[in-house]
């Protein structure tokens, strides 16, 4: 049962991440195009970091860093009379009221909190990829389209919302569909973040002896992983077809090779 439920975990991760990825992506892309230099530098740093650093490092780093950051802030807000340092040698000590989530809260709260931290880490990393794609797409819209808008007397805002943004999608779609494929294939990394996802259950249920139970069957992990493999193959196969359809629809009315067909 838990095994089937864990498929939902994967889908919910995808569903939660996508809006945030687009949000971070747009912020990053717009920051990179900003006329204010510090914003531009920030955008550039954000979009280039994923090229130099493996995503797995972010997945490991961001949840712990966020967790400690939140607890640090709460510690300062809730227990101002606490005088001992927070970092005591190899320990990170905050007062009980600043624990996040609170110590006595039920197990599912802990799990959900961990899940959201993981989702946020995904959103930050893939937001940077998306920012790269969207930045390229914004730059790919032909200049004369925007100049036409200006010639009609449209304001900067109108040009952006009515011409630049709608036209950008066609150029962004191939990059975004690629990103979606990478995102799908990154979901099993949830397991490394301690979320009980399909990989976790495949190992738990497939092994003949686990931390919790000794199953009467032998080592079935190979079989379970084959099921996962097929699951992912199906997922990417379906997505590929959906994107091909979408691309056809989006290119309608545009004088590109795809649009003329």
């Amino acid at each position: 049962m838990n095994f089937y439920f864990s498929f939902l975990v994967v889908f919910s991760l995808l569903a939660i991440c996508v809006p945030f990825i687009l949000l971070f992506g747009f912020t990053g892309a717009l920051a990179r195009r900003s006329r204010i230099a510090p914003f531009r530098w920030f955008g550039l740093a954000y979009t280039s970091m994923v090229r130099g650093i493996p995503d797995i490092i972010f997945f490991l780093f961001v949840p712990i860093a966020l967790d400690q950051g939140i607890e640090y802030l709460r510690h300062h807000a809730k227990c101002p009379e606490w005088t001992e340092p927070i970092r005591q040698g190899n320990d990170f000590v905050v007062c009980a009221a600043a624990k996040m989530p609170l110590g006595p809260s039920p197990q599912w709260v802990h799990e959900t909190y961990g899940f959201f931290l993981a989702a946020l880490a995904f959103a930050i990393v893939f937001g940077a990829f998306a920012a790269n794609t969207l930045h390229g797409a914004l730059a790919a819209v032909p200049k004369n389209q925007l100049e036409t808008g200006a010639a009609f007397g449209m304001s900067q805002k109108q040009i952006f919302w009515r011409i630049h943004l709608p036209q950008m999608w066609v150029y962004a779609l191939p990059g975004l569909s690629n990103l979606w494929m990478i995102l799908i294939k990154a979901t099993p990394l949830l397991f490394l973040l301690g979320v009980e996802d399909i990989v976790y259950w495949a190992r738990e249920l497939g092994g003949s002896k686990t931390e919790r139970f000794a199953y009467p069957h032998g080592d079935w992990r190979l079989g379970y992983f084959l099921v996962l493999l097929v699951f992912y193959l199906l997922l990417s196969w379906v997505s590929e077809h959906v994107f091909a359809r979408l691309n056809l629809k989006m290119s309608k009315g545009l004088a590109t090779i795809g649009g003329q067909a």
């Binding site: 294939k185 099993p188 495949a202 190979l222 493999l229 992912y232 193959l233 196969w237």
Partner: peptide, 22 residues
């Protein structure tokens, strides 16, 4: 090409490791 590109590298690691162990 389809099988390798369509499945996560992570799953491939697990799968082949289990296969090698068996």
């Amino acid at each position: 090409i389809f099988v390798i590109r369509g499945s996560p590298l992570f799953i491939q690691f697990f799968l082949l490791y289990e296969a090698f162990v068996l």
